[in-house]
Design a protein around this nucleic acid. Structure first.
Length: 491
RNA sequence: GCUCCGGUAGUGUAGUCCGGCCAAUCAUGUCGGCCUCUCGAGCCGAUGACUCGGGUUCGAAUCCCGGCCGGAGCACCA
């Protein structure tokens, strides 16, 4: 006993040392960014990037920039700009500055021109497939030899050309052993109205170009990104060198897979449009809004992401893991209520008057100061059908009320005390009074809806409260008007 | 196919850079017992992993080579 304190402090120090690894080469202020493409709401993969960035910003007292990367007019959902901010807010991630790339197109044009003047970019008018053919054989196309003046001239004409006629390429190494790195495209023509800035421009930067210019201008010191960007990081390094800029630290983490969730934004969008899903918050989706609707706390997600960290190896997240972390949080927080989902009305015969009345039960067994809920008990109750079936010839205990037994299709009072129930090996079940018990719905993970009834006190809850429906599981109250609807979280 | 990168218990993770203190950490899950008027929690216990094969070494999860398996990229998307 006396030694316990010592063990605890040792343990504490040990766990403190774990967690996220430090960022490499930290000198001066740390500036990080979270840079999603506004094509839909955030999903669990975005949460990883957002949480990791935020965590490092916190650790180094740095700065976090939110950057919306909307340089492809075709891949934008105008609603996403706002949804992303909402999702980040739910996650508890705060940014110090927000920029939107479509506000900065002119800037990218200026840097593109500068790059041409440096002789490090050229206008390429080759058809894409022809260039690819040459490139795959490590051969430059004739455009690569254009003079700076010729390139500038073509560059000025670019806005008057149409899509596909020309691109601006960055010179890298045409012999680079990875063909993907060879002379990549910096600017291209897009004949498509941009949802935010309309038809102001038709020459747009490619992601790699815009990202590099912005990361430099904003003073980003460390870039956390998925390993799918490994080749992009290498492409971008050429640009940093051309401009003589300092290359930030690139940190790549592995892919995140979520068991049984389909989840690319485009797949989800299609499902929503086809009526397969109810919306971005459909419980079957991996979006943050779906996850939060199911009563998963942001803290659980945060713990998970910090545990996964920044390893480059892929990881598969199991729901059980999330539920386990979440249950640790909910156990204390969630008050308890009764609800019955396959309701069967039962009239208890021979019930002594003395057993009727109002039953009091703690809202939370570990926190008596939260008080009680009251359940009127007059011998007529709803029970879960499956509990009835399982206990046909046995004694059944209604929690905090009485013990009953079934005989010849009738339900008969057996005894009152818990001791008696114990003696009879009775199963103890929740119940709901027949009078004044509101109808409730419980939306399951597969979006099926269970209809049932809950005890009267359920009406004191507010939307967003997460409770434990005893013997059913944890659930989040989604709405109370016009009907009471819960989303199932987990056992 | 080409380029690159990974592979520690069911899942996630520590340890791998600088070989020995690792018969390998922690979490979550699973199983069992106790407890509890919840199928929740708590307590106790159990389970379970270094991808394989060679090599270097007194000694390898850690270093080297090869195989196997897995992933990413190979766009005028991000």
């Amino acid at each position: 006993m006396e030694n316990k304190g010592i063990f605890e402090t040792v343990k504490e120090r040990k766990t403190e040392e774990k967690g996220l690894v430090d960022l490499p080469n930290v000198e001066g202020e740390v500036v990080l960014r979270f840079a999603p493409n506004p094509s839909g709401p955030l999903h669990i993969g975005h949460a990883r990037a957002a949480i990791l960035n935020q965590e490092y910003v916190k650790r180094y007292s740095g700065k976090l920039i939110l950057r919306l990367e909307d340089t492809d007019p075709r891949r934008i959902d105008p609603k996403a700009y706002q949804m992303i901010e909402e999702d980040l807010t739910w996650l508890g991630v705060k940014w110090d500055e927000k920029i939107i790339q479509s506000d900065r197109i002119t800037l990218y044009h200026q840097y593109a021109e500068k790059l041409i003047e440096l002789g490090q970019a050229y206008m390429c008018t080759c058809p894409g497939d022809e260039f690819k053919k040459l490139k795959d054989q490590s051969q430059a196309c004739s455009c690569r030899d254009l003079s700076i003046d010729d390139n500038l001239k073509l560059w000025k004409e670019m806005p008057f050309m149409s899509e596909g006629e020309a691109v601006l390429r960055v010179k890298t190494d045409i012999q680079h052993k990875n063909p993907a790195i060879r002379d990549w495209v910096a600017m291209r023509i897009v004949d498509f109205e941009h949802p935010r800035i309309g038809t102001l421009f038709n020459v747009y930067p490619m992601m790699n170009f815009a990202v590099t210019v912005d990361d430099h201008l904003l003073g980003i010191t460390h870039v956390l990104r998925g390993k799918d960007h490994l080749a992009n990081s290498e492409k971008q390094e050429y640009l940093y060198h051309h401009f003589g800029w300092t290359v930030p630290e690139f940190i790549h983490y592995g892919r995140l897979k979520m068991e049984d969730v389909a989840l690319s934004t485009s797949q989800a969008r299609k499902g929503i449009n086809d009526g397969l899903y109810t919306g971005w918050d459909d419980p079957r989706l991996g979006t943050l809004r779906a996850i939060s609707k199911r009563g998963i706390k942001k803290e659980a997600l945060k713990e998970l992401m910090l545990e996964i960290g920044v390893k480059i190896a892929d990881t598969t997240i199991s729901w059980k893991k999330i539920y386990g972390l979440n249950r640790n949080l909910l156990e204390d927080e969630a008050n308890r209520y009764f609800a019955v989902f396959h309701p069967e009305k039962v009239i208890i015969e021979n019930l002594p008057e003395s057993d009727k009345g109002v039953i009091k039960r703690l809202k939370h067994p570990d926190f008596p100061d939260r008080g009680y809920r009251m359940l009127p008990f007059d011998g007529i109750v709803y029970l879960d059908q499956t509990d009835l079936e399982r206990n046909e010839s046995k004694v059944l205990r209604l929690m905090d009320a009485v013990n009953i037994v079934f005989k010849d299709g009738k339900t008969i009072f057996h005894s009152s005390s818990l001791e008696e129930a114990r003696r009879s090996n009775a199963q103890i079940v929740q119940w709901v009074p027949v009078t004044s018990s509101p109808d409730v719905e419980l939306v399951m993970h597969d979006n099926t809806i269970l209809k049932g009834l809950a005890e009267p006190s359920i009406e004191e809850l507010n939307p967003n409260d997460v409770v434990q429906l005893e013997r059913v599981g944890f659930a989040r109250l989604d709405e109370i008007q016009p009907k009471i609807r819960f989303y199932f979280a987990h056992k």
